[in-house]
Nucleic acid binder design. Structure first.
Lengths: 245, 245
DNA sequence: TATCGGTCGATACACTGTATCGACCGCCGC
DNA sequence: GCGGCGGTCGATACAGTGTATCGACCGATA
């Protein structure tokens, strides 16, 4: 179908496709404007709040207008993700000498971005993002890993460390943020969630088939999500340290 | 709204709500039948292939019929996730003595389930799953962590180890499976994907702003996803080991 | 056997992403 | 200055989605 296979000059990826030239109309448009409106909607209502129709309405424009700047909704999501990656690229200048501090910085930047844009972790962990800011963030991550003593020259070990580090970020942020998001959607805090499910959990645990889980729920102080994130991160950093010694 | 606040006897969670009694009709129904049909659809077409209408059609039943067994579509997804957790619970009997082997077993079972049901990682990492099999799998994970020498009595450290381990599983499986799924959706293998994006990546890397990334893409043999998963896991296990010594 | 209560599913509603295509408007050549 | 044309815009349409509503039917009880 669509047999015209003769020379497709339009680049397939949005990162290489130029956007249409600006044009004087009552409601001028650009990818930047579109992405800005979409970010606002997503920050307010989550990813479900982003629909072509709603973004267009926010820009006082017909829905079909957007398809001149973006081929598909998922391209719009790619642009949104790349905009968040821009917040993750560490500031240029002297990076921390201590490699652990360097990786902690990247982790903190990533978590900060995820807290600002709770929908971001949902987009993470899919097929790799190839936008300019995503690539810059990736390069920065690799640079931080290069400063681990003994890791610079060994691509296999570096790959393992990168996989573990990145997977931990994706997994823990996705977990933390989707909980927070669900809580807010139902208009209750984490306290209230535990209260809501508490009766059920208490009944289940009272049955005695989950002694270790019961112990963990009851015992000890429950750390804040931030502390939990950092604590798990230290485990991963220790693992990376063990990789080379 | 809906002012009848007087005594809501129906349990809120599906895990405690009994399903309606079986009934002799031309097309008898049950949660098990519904979940079975939904699993089949999801395995074949991904999570997008699961719609109330399609599940009902597979059972030769009107769509609204399902709402007698399930309050909402997300409850159906919860049931589907719990069915997969059943495949993750390690077989009863003597667990491996070596704690690393115990954690590797759980990781392997989780990955096996994710490969069988590529949509499963998408459901992971949301608000914690509380179904019976999910809780059993969680208990097994805690049991494996309890066999780490020196971790048994320390809930704080155990929590950190659990967070790192679980987050790694979620992150790496989500990444791996969503790539594989996207590849298959477009009918091409991983080889072909790299070829499709290769021109773009080559152009970007040729610009020289991402030397470390370029080095990593070019250099070294690319491990299979399974090897990469296990390699990253070892980093996490090393980190857990470092937690107690 | 007559009635009642519960179950089923047809219909409806408010959405979604996007293909199609007619109409309009601004710019260019004359 | 004006005619025509090409590109842009957006109204409309289509095939879906989850789920609320409600009329009709059917089986079991009195």
């Amino acid at each position: 179908m669509t047999p015209r296979r003769t020379a497709e000059p339009e680049p397939a990826l949005i990162w290489e496709r130029p956007e249409p030239p600006a044009r004087r109309t009552p409601h001028p448009l650009s990818r930047a404007l579109i992405v800005g409106a979409a970010l606002e909607l997503a920050d307010a209502d989550g990813l479900d709040g982003v629909s072509i129709r709603r973004v267009a309405a926010a820009l006082e424009v017909g829905p079909m207008r957007l398809y001149g700047y973006v081929d598909t909704k998922s391209e719009l999501l790619d642009l949104m993700a790349d905009a968040v990656y821009a917040e993750i690229v560490p500031p240029a200048g002297r990076p921390p000498q201590d490699w652990r501090a360097g990786l902690r910085l990247i982790a903190a930047l990533t978590r900060r971005a995820a807290l600002r844009h709770e929908w971001f972790p949902e987009l993470l962990g899919g097929r790799p993002h190839l936008g300019p800011h995503a690539l810059a963030a990736l390069e920065a991550k690799l640079a931080a890993l290069h400063r681990v003593p003994g890791l610079a020259g060994r691509p296999a070990e570096l790959r393992r460390a990168a996989a573990a580090f990145q997977s931990y970020l994706v997994g823990s942020l996705r977990t933390e943020l989707s909980e927070r998001q669900a809580d807010r959607a139902e208009g209750r805090s984490e306290e209230q969630w535990r209260d809501a499910n508490s009766p059920y959990l208490r009944r289940v645990l009272a049955a005695g088939r989950h002694p270790l889980l019961a112990e963990l729920v009851v015992e000890g102080e429950h750390p804040t999500p931030g502390e939990e994130f950092e604590a798990g991160l230290e485990v991963v950093l220790d693992g990376i340290a063990a990789l080379v010694c």
